[in-house]
Nucleic acid binder design. Structure first.
Length: 324
DNA sequence: AACCAATGCAACCGCAGAGTA
DNA sequence: GTACTCTGCGGTTGCATTGGT
């Protein structure tokens, strides 16, 4: 009895991934697909535990990842979804293509929580904070920023954010569709809750008030219309900076001809409940763009000389947008 | 310039659930 | 039904970066 450790920890490397390790992992997954994470490090020649490899791939190396700040639309979605689902970050992430649970979790903890508190909303319950809590938060804010945000409109709103359920709604796709007019169409955004409960939210009636309290300097870089870029790759869309300085790393990759091993071969993206996995295949149809982006990734300014990855080797433009 | 605190993010850890023999 | 493995999730930590003094 007793649980085996997920991997033999003796001699395994921990800490930040190096470019070389990333290369090995990318190469392996491109060649073999995602399968049996436990075996990946051994087969890929990595001194990492399988969990670590999986995490690295999912959170950082996956080609369909969107980098950069969450857009306002995405932030609203996160807040809304969090109100429905709580801290179920993977569920929330599944509604935000190109975003990982870790990324959303981090963004929630570092940005959204503060914003909601600043606006007098309890991030845990999505209900207005008590006056005491608001005052406390105001004082903190004053101390930190020497300025405070007006909270009166939130204080007047002494009721939880409302959510309407629409049991008749049947989503075609689990992906959130980009609104044609994000400012207004958010009011009727739909969310799929697991176990067949389909939720239609009118949360943004109130959330609009909430979001209006956001500071202008907190407006995300990514515009709503820039989200959900994944589509048929265009050869001209290759990142301007990526292909020019590429070296032969990706030529060494011996890009596949592989079949994705997660038995999704006969599913197209739109039929997928877990948009992340299948979209990978769709997005990788054009190896040229992918290679360019990977080159950008791998050959990014690694001038430290220690082989350690620059933290933001991939930015949203060079990676996600450049890629597609 | 140097120091320190705050911040943000990548990565780790432990647990739970699904799958399998 | 039990024992076990594997994967995925959520909470937390560690560290690099940034900003203030």
């Amino acid at each position: 009895m007793g649980r085996q450790p997920c991997c033999d920890k003796v001699g395994l490397k921990k800490g930040p991934w190096t470019a070389d390790e990333d290369k090995k992992l990318i190469n392996f997954i491109l060649t073999n697909g995602q399968c049996c994470w436990r075996a990946v490090p051994k087969l890929a020649g990595l001194l990492r535990c399988g969990k670590s490899c999986r995490l690295r791939w999912i959170n950082y190396l996956r080609p369909d990842l969107k980098r950069g700040l969450l857009s306002e639309f995405e932030e609203k979605m996160v807040i809304d979804l969090h109100a429905q689902l709580g801290n179920r970050w993977s569920k929330i992430a599944s509604h935000l293509p190109g975003r990982t649970d870790n990324e959303i979790k981090n963004h929630w903890n570092t940005h959204i929580k503060k914003k909601l508190k600043k606006m007098g909303i309890d991030p845990a319950t999505h209900k207005p904070l008590s006056n005491e809590a608001i005052e406390q938060n105001q004082n903190q804010t004053k101390q930190q920023l020497n300025q405070s945000q007006p909270l009166e409109e939130n204080n007047q709103n002494q009721q939880p954010l409302q959510v309407d359920f629409d049991p008749n709604f049947e989503p075609e796709n689990d992906q959130i569709k980009e609104p044609e007019k994000p400012e207004t169409s958010l009011e009727s955004s739909t969310i799929t809750k697991e176990n067949d409960n389909i939720i239609t939210t009118t949360l943004f009636d109130t959330m609009d008030d909430v979001m209006n309290g956001f500071c202008t300097d907190e407006v995300p870089i990514i515009e709503p219309h820039e989200i959900l870029v994944p589509c048929v790759p265009s050869s001209s869309s290759t990142s301007t900076s990526s292909s020019s300085n590429s070296t032969n790393f990706l030529e060494d990759l011996q890009l596949p001809d592989f079949e994705w091993s997660c038995n999704d071969n006969d599913n197209n993206v739109t039929n997928n409940n877990d948009a992340n996995n299948n979209s990978i295949m769709a997005l990788w149809d054009d190896n040229d763009d992918f290679i360019s982006s990977l080159n950008m990734l791998i050959n990014g300014d690694d001038d430290d000389g220690d082989g350690k990855y620059p933290r933001m080797a991939m930015d949203s433009e060079s990676w996600a947008y450049g890629l597609f």
